[in-house]
């Protein structure tokens, strides 16, 4: 697993108070991991913080699963 994926996993587990091994790539934040709308906003903020990027609202709306987050952040780090 990539470094980015590991960091995403850690953030998700910490913010949603769940075991890291439940944070699989295909997991949907709200449907599988119990995040409500405010949790999701907070998660995106945590990603911004960790990776030093800005995630605009329209992009944030498309980040629904762990893999979506990893993909988006990987793209950003390539661009940078």
């Amino acid at each position: 697993m990539s470094d980015i994926a590991n960091r995403v996993k850690k953030i998700v587990a910490e913010h949603l108070s769940i075991e890291e091994d439940k944070v699989v790539a295909s997991a949907n934040f709200s449907e599988d991991l119990g995040a409500d709308s405010l949790d999701t906003v907070e998660l995106v903020m945590a990603f911004e913080e960790e990776f030093g990027v800005d995630i605009p609202d329209d992009a944030a709306e498309k980040i629904l699963t762990v893999q979506d987050a990893v993909d988006f952040l990987s793209e950003q780090s390539k661009a940078a």
Binding site: L38, V41, E42, M45, E48, E49
Partner: peptide, 10 residues
């Protein structure tokens, strides 16, 4: 402003 928590108000 972007760092203010969504949980701040509630």
């Amino acid at each position: 402003a972007r760092r203010v928590s969504p949980f701040f108000i509630p």
